[in-house]
Simulated scan of single mutants.
Amino acid sequence: MPEIRDVPAPAAAAPYDALLLLSFGGPEGPEEVVPFLENVTRGRGIPKERLVEVGQHYFRFGGVSPINAQNRELLAALRADFAAAGLELPVYWGNRNWAPFLVDTLREMAEDGHRRIAVLATSAYAGYSGCRQYRENLADALATLAAEGRPALRVDKLRHFYNHPGFIEPMIDATLTALAELPAELREGAELAFTTHSIPTAMAESSGAPDDPARGTPGGAYVAQHLAVAELITQAVAKATGVADRPWQLVYQSRSGAPHIPWLEPDICDHLTVRQQDGAEAVVMIPIGFVSDHMEVKYDLDTEAVAKAAELGLPVARAATVGADPRFTAAVRELVLERAATERGLAPRRCALGALGASHDVCAVDCCPNPRAPRPAAAQA
């Protein structure tokens, strides 16, 4: 497996002839907010009035989600990294819920002559929303192209990258930077709150595959993988700061489900309240569940959580997400080359930090099941 500094041969990505950056999507103007939310919630019977209410998060920012601009930045960074490394692999971008739509991007890729496509989903962890739903959307898009009589495409989703050094190391640095933003007298006693998207507890418990080493630990693969990331960052921060027993906890944000359905807790705002009551000096919020600073980071953390902390009189700082950090773009290149080598029958080095090791390449049929009804999914055994 090539090191980041090594320059791969142009054929190193074979059998892949393109990479698809697959993301969530977001509105880019006030008139797009409700139609976007209708796409996100299709089939759930949510009234339009409720969508308008939820849309206030977007209207507060002019109706523009930052996610598309951040994906454009990542797209450009990936293309630049590939070119600098001598990797001749075109990179495309498609979204699940807004333009550029996934089916349109795959149609463009087919028209450009691509047939074997590696897919990077902008979600690092196992779970229905973060993995299988992307694969279901891929299956839907491929079925649409087949119905149009287009050439068959094969798509392979790259493995979960939550514990890849290129994802972990930028987050360690971001945590240290956030700590340094606090007043000097608060840094040693500052606690760490690792945040990710809350999901229904039933979905968390069913996340992962039966043979996944993270399965069987409390909380299933989704929680286990986040805990592994939090522990890696905490250990590195302890080494860098000399504070060995800094308190930390995995907390959640962005709950959107019905009140009677149990979701993962505690919520970040509730956590801040409890920690202030228990005498915490300061808290650093680290959004390990997100690749970029999109709306759920900007609103739920930078707006709601920061306002709650101010109300409590609790000093807080927020670590940046990975975004288009060069170490992350290099990690994506490594993941492409790793999977390509595996497809060619080789046994490449699979970079991963911590006890859980590198995730599986191909998802099992019963991996992260759809909570509503079984649906076809691409890139599975």
Rank of each mutant, 00 (worst) to 15 (best):
E265M: 01
S129C: 12
R350I: 11
L232D: 06
A258L: 11
A152I: 02
T342A: 15
H114R: 15
D267N: 04
G130C: 15
R107W: 10
T195Q: 11
R215G: 00
F61H: 15
R318V: 14
N137S: 10
H360W: 10
M285H: 03
V322P: 05
L22M: 12
E181P: 00
P151L: 06
I199N: 13
N137H: 15
R115W: 04
T122Y: 09
A352Y: 07
V365R: 14
P218M: 12
P27R: 09
A381N: 12
A18W: 05
F61C: 02
G149L: 07
M171K: 08
A236P: 06
G289D: 13
L264H: 11
R115D: 02
V229H: 02
L356S: 02
M295S: 12
Y252E: 06
A221L: 03
A13F: 03
A347G: 08
L20T: 06
E38I: 04
M203E: 15
R344T: 01
A280V: 12
A126L: 07
A240T: 01
V316W: 00
E136F: 00
H271C: 11
E231M: 06
F161P: 10
A214V: 09
R318L: 02
A9F: 02
E281S: 06
T201Q: 15
G345P: 15
G130Y: 13
Y162V: 14
R372I: 09
P376F: 11
H226D: 00
A330M: 06
V52F: 06
I233L: 08
T175R: 00
R349E: 15
L264W: 10
V365W: 13
A146N: 03
G242F: 00
L51W: 07
Q249V: 03
D212S: 04
A99T: 14
A224I: 13
N97D: 03
P259D: 04
A309F: 03
E188N: 05
V103A: 04
L78W: 07
A309Y: 04
R96Y: 06
P165L: 03
E188C: 03
H260R: 13
N68C: 08
R339H: 14
G216E: 08
V274H: 12
E136G: 00
A124P: 14
R96F: 08
V91S: 01
R349S: 13
A379I: 04
G166K: 10
I46W: 05
L22T: 09
L182T: 01
V237S: 04
V291R: 05
I288S: 02
L346Q: 14
D112C: 07
R154G: 09
E88T: 14
E343G: 01
T273R: 13
V284E: 07
E28C: 04
A178I: 07
R60V: 03
L37I: 11
E304N: 10
W93Q: 09
A330D: 12
